[in-house]
Amino acid sequence: MKKTKEVVIEKFLLFSALITILTTIGIVLVLAIEAFKFFREVSVFEFLTDTEWTPLFTKKRFGILPLLSGTFLTSIIAIAVALPIGLTIAIFLSEYAPRKFREYIKPSLEMLAAVPTVVYGFFALTVVTPFLQTIIPGMSGFNSLSAGIVMGIMIIPIISSLSEDALRAVPNSLREASYGMGSTRLQTAFKVTVPAASSGIVVSIILAISRAIGETMIVAIAAGQQPRLTMNPLVPVETLTAYIVQVSLGDVPHNSLEYRTIFAAGITLFIFTFILNNISHWIKNKYREKYD
């Protein structure tokens, strides 16, 4: 009686854990099946090489490149903002700041990641863009620059927090050896600590990139909804995620080619983030072995 109860409970717990596996299988199957139906009508070659993405127009073109360029442009801008700031914060907190300061500032920085992304989108559109327009005349109301900058602010805590953990894991003996030879804290940080923690820092950057690529609402609000193959940060672009939102807001009938385009965009997005996440896991595991 008691034994059966124990077994039933264990089975229930196991089933709950297996739901996570089912989720992954579900994601992969849904994306793969709908994308497969999409590629029965659109050739993979056109998808990968055509420079225009106009599935919602009468003259339909299905080149993913404009959406990819929009995604990477906003992500690059975001990393360009978040990397120097995030890394500086990490070095400052681990090598310079007093313990008390660090204890208070770290949770405050996490707040940046707790703010809903629509709120960031609002900032980008109503504060950052008008401000940048006063400096850069002729800048469009929708552009990848302000979306990217705001996204960068949002992902600062990812880089600063994970990099700081990596820096603090560096044994103190290494720092002391460097100080002992008359190095300043700055020299020690950049010549000893940062190289020693490099794999952890790389992991934090990769995770930040992955987050930027998958970010949706900021770009949907502030970067515009015009697929465009460009590296100009001042004009409207569209990202993979913003495209999915754009189609979802409209009234696209199920089982239509337009409906399937969001899964084609989705699987492209999924593949990129999946690869990035796995690279970061791989580095993390290697790094863990090194320190044990």
Binding site: I27, G214, T216, F263, N277
Partner: peptide, 25 residues
């Protein structure tokens, strides 16, 4: 081991992908 890797992978999947899953399933 598989569950663990899978969960950390799921944590990195963009939220909009979950939307596509929910839409279809």
């Amino acid at each position: 081991k598989l569950l663990e890797i899978n969960i950390s992978n799921l944590a990195g999947v963009p939220s909009i992908i979950y939307g596509l899953l929910g839409l279809e399933i």
